[in-house]
Write a protein that binds this DNA or RNA. Structure first.
Lengths: 142, 142
DNA sequence: CGTTGTTTTGCAACAGCGTTGCTTTTATGT
DNA sequence: ACATAAAAGCAACGCTGTTGCAAAACAACG
């Protein structure tokens, strides 16, 4: 099981054109094991003794660049990251789902089954991307 | 005209239970004169010589607390602020409009005429607040 | 399996953002 | 105009994210 996940992360890394290193495997495993988004601070808290702060920053950046994870904007000024679905590729993110932030446990979830509704903008505006973040109370915290 | 705006800002401050000071008037005037959101950095650039950095932070915070302005989350990790409509009061923000970020001029607008569409979440989720940020190209930059 | 060239990591230092404590100055209400 | 309460200024700090460079790890190839 742990080995299965190991294999999965290695495959994912290779499939996205990233060389396989210990740090990348560990960080990717965090994303795979925990459904929900992670902030840099979360990762540092879990792996802080193993890897340098800078390495984590650069790893996250490379993951975003290669379409492995995407960033989620939040009100509290801390960027969170979550795994992308298969449709995302290098340079092209297609996260058409909405994000949910729980006020109790402070976890962030990708609600893949909920698509972002289309919006009608006033004349003259060209839409490029739509971000939707819903906050409230999640299933586990009810 | 400048005096009319002066009066308007004084009224607004008083109406929201804030004492009237030079800094608050100047900062509020910035919001009144410029349609669009402002980041702390923008304000500092315009008024930086007049007021201390800390004063600007505290002023913005008090404006948010009293329901004068609201914050807008962005991907680049810089909080922007925009004027609230009348429905907002101390502690209760009702910004049910969407926000638009232009990729060209990098301005942020409140599209008050566009309401946030309602979303259907999976069972077990309680919705508290919905944030919608659309990015693209604005009217002036077409 | 070892060598070589490239990529990644760790370390140190730095810049920017936002906060806090304390003192001085400014506003408010009587 | 005065006393009291609030805000501004100053200094310092912590946290987040970035950059340059040297050491280490990885990938490809013979």
């Amino acid at each position: 099981m742990a080995t299965a996940r190991q294999k999965e992360s290695v495959e994912l890394l290779k499939a996205h054109g990233l060389s396989v290193t210990g740090g990348r495997k560990d960080i990717l495993n965090l994303f795979l094991s925990r459904k929900g988004a992670l902030a840099h601070a979360d990762i540092e808290k879990k792996l802080g003794t193993l890897y340098d702060r800078v390495t984590i920053y650069r790893t996250l950046q490379s993951f975003v660049d290669k379409g492995l994870i995407h960033s989620i904007p939040t009100k509290d000024n801390s960027i969170r990251y979550a795994l992308c679905k298969d449709e995302c590729a290098s340079g092209h993110h297609h996260d058409h789902h909405i994000h949910f932030v729980c006020k109790r446990c402070n976890h962030t979830y990708c609600l893949d089954e909920v698509a972002t509704p289309s919006v009608k903008l006033p004349k003259g505006y060209t839409v490029n991307q739509v971000e939707m973040v819903v906050s409230g109370v999640c299933q586990s915290c009810q």
